[in-house]
Amino acid sequence: MSLLELRKLNKHFGGLHVTNGVNLTLEPGEIHCLIGPNGAGKSTLFRLILGEHHPGSGDILFAGENITALKSFARIHRGLSVKFQVPGVFKGLSVRQNLEIALQSRHRGAELDAEIGRLLAFLGLEAEQAQTAGNLSHGQKQWLEIGMAISLKPRLLLLDEPTAGMSPEETHMTGEMVQRLNADGMTVLAIEHDMAFVRQVARRVTVLHLGQVFAQGSIDEIVADERVAAIYLGQAHA
């Protein structure tokens, strides 16, 4: 059984057809990258999967269950988790408290403290734990939010541009982290513009263009596809 299945998803914003009959299937254990020019509808697709937007038509199946009508928090309980495009940390709270809020529903007391410590070490944010999250650098905020997202131990992790604003080394480290999580059994769907990252982690790549699935295949197939190059070039001209 596939882990996630999108069936003919449609979403309009007024006259704008942002998601146009999208079909997409994720197998358990894969790392899948979603690419496409700005405004292709990638983030909107995430919000549909998460229940922040509701599709005009179509169905979303997670582990065989139709979750199209479920509230967002209930989808999280089913095993979804997300890191947003714009880092969504709790800016006014300390780094430590951010992680505590993410972890407190599954751990208590001394065990909670230990888990927070482990996650701080994993993220390399031990020195910053007392800092207000709003004062972190952009890259650190991204890490913190990734940390909060993975602390839920999701079956499917959604990452919207996880390496934006990161140096090439940091990007590579993030890629390694994604691979490590995947080796532990986490399925990952990542939106990413950074082709080095995509090449590093993805087994399969889906190209979204004007709200439609434009192409699908391995990274080499996608890079070799002239039609894909054309839509990116088209955007460069625009």
């Binding site: 998460l50 922040e52 947003f84 709790f90 006014g92 709270l93 505590e100 809020i101 407190q104 909060m148």
Partner: peptide
Amino acid sequence: SSFGNVIVAIRENPERAEMLGYDV
């Protein structure tokens, strides 16, 4: 308490709180 944690989390960012599984 953990309840208070969720309350301030909602003040800071209700979307993130929901995406941590809290019924905001």
